[in-house]
Amino acid sequence: MMFLIHLERGITRFSNFLGVICTLMFIALLFNVFYDVLMRYAFNNVSIAMQELEWHLYSAIFLLGIPYGIQHGGHVRVDLIYENLSIRGKAWTDLFGCIVFLIPFTLLVGYYGVGFAYESYALGETSGDPGGLAHRWIIKGVIPLAFFCMTISGIGMILRCINALRGVSEEGFSHPPIQH
């Protein structure tokens, strides 16, 4: 069953890649806002496109950050019971949660997100404000993209549970990859 382990690692690498993208976008956001404040205050110069870029970046960060967080155990649990469970117990809980909650939810929202972004593409939607950004479909398209990435991260979580339940690997339960 090395295949499942490889697949799980492949999905982890994919999520890490999302983490890199989001981090770079975050640093861009930081300087984007700083630049806008500086230009407005010091040079009386406002660019609506740069102002819109702020929310484009910020929303892409949180949307694509969610699948990264799934892979790295970053999402909050009410762990009154969970923290006392054995690894097998945790794996069963996560397996149940992924199959019943996470995967159907992300797939369904992703599905409707495709239509949402496609509408925008078909209309050639742009910003309604002077000098705003064109191609609104790109940022709208991040919604389905992010939700399908969440599905993929959810599959990674399922594999992790299966590997743990079969006794192949307890990666991801004994040592959550990132800690604060």
């Binding site: 799934i70 469970l85 369904l108």
Partner: peptide, 26 residues
């Protein structure tokens, strides 16, 4: 279901999905 300990965000989403779809459809 939150007490099970699955991440809060997706427990909300999943429960909403089940009830929403049963009551009003997809």
């Amino acid at each position: 279901l939150l007490l099970l300990g699955f991440p809060v965000a997706f427990t909300f989403g999943g429960v909403a999905l089940i009830f929403g779809v049963l009551a009003e459809g997809f």
